Deep mutational scan, measured.
Amino acid sequence: SSGGSSILDRAVIEHNLLSASKLYNNITFEELGALLEIPAAKAEKIASQMITEGRMNGFIDQIDGIVHFETR
């Protein structure tokens, strides 16, 4: 797709992000992006959206560029 990722790509990214949230206590956007094979800024945006929508527990430290995952 030309304008970003398809629905399937997005679903795969979100699935992998949720998997990462179970493996890590926290991770930088750079590391997360590398893990998900997407730019760091996109990793931040998707993580932020999932947390806001209540689909993933955690919070974002924008100063240090880190996602902190919280286990249920």
Results as ranks from 00 to 15, higher is better:
S1I: 10
K42A: 15
H68S: 06
G65F: 05
I66W: 05
G54R: 06
K42W: 15
R72T: 11
G58W: 10
H68D: 04
K42C: 14
S1P: 12
D64L: 15
F29G: 01
H68K: 05
S21P: 02
A43Q: 00
D9S: 06
E14P: 02
R72K: 12
S2V: 12
Y24D: 01
A47I: 10
G65A: 06
M50P: 00
Q49G: 05
L8H: 11
K42M: 15
V12N: 09
E30F: 09
M50G: 01
G65D: 03
V67H: 00
A20N: 04
E14N: 03
A40G: 06
I63C: 08
A34M: 11
N16A: 14
A43N: 00
S6E: 14
F69T: 02
S19G: 08
G33S: 07
K22I: 07
G3L: 12
E37D: 14
E70S: 07
T28F: 03
I27M: 13
A43Y: 02
L36V: 02
K45R: 11
V12R: 13
A20C: 08
R55E: 03
I38T: 02
D64Q: 15
Y24N: 03
V12S: 11
L18H: 05
K45P: 02
D64V: 11
A20H: 06
I7N: 13
N25K: 15
E31R: 08
A34H: 09
T52I: 12
S48Q: 13
I7H: 11
I7C: 11
K45D: 10
L36A: 02
Q62H: 15
M56L: 15
D61F: 06
S48A: 13
L35F: 08
I46R: 01
K45T: 11
A47Y: 03
E31V: 07
K22E: 06
S1W: 04
S2D: 13
I60S: 02
E14A: 04
K45Y: 13
D64T: 15
T28V: 02
G3D: 13
E44D: 03
N57S: 12
G65I: 02
I63S: 08
S48M: 12
E30D: 08
G33Y: 02
G58N: 01
E37Y: 07
A34S: 08
S2I: 11
T52G: 09
I7Q: 12
I46N: 00
I60V: 09
Q49I: 08
G58M: 03
G3V: 12
L32V: 01
P39D: 10
N16D: 06
A11N: 09
F69S: 01
V12P: 05
E53N: 07
N26K: 15
N57K: 14
L23C: 10
A40K: 07
D61K: 05
Q62I: 14
A11V: 10
F29S: 02
G58C: 03
A41V: 09
H15L: 13
G4H: 11
I51Y: 02
K42Q: 15
K22A: 07
S21V: 09
A40T: 07
L23T: 07
R10K: 09
F29E: 00
L35R: 04
G58A: 12
A43L: 10
A47W: 03
I60T: 03
R10P: 09
I7T: 11
F59N: 05
S19R: 15
I38L: 07
Q62A: 11
G33P: 00
I51H: 01
E31S: 07
A43G: 02
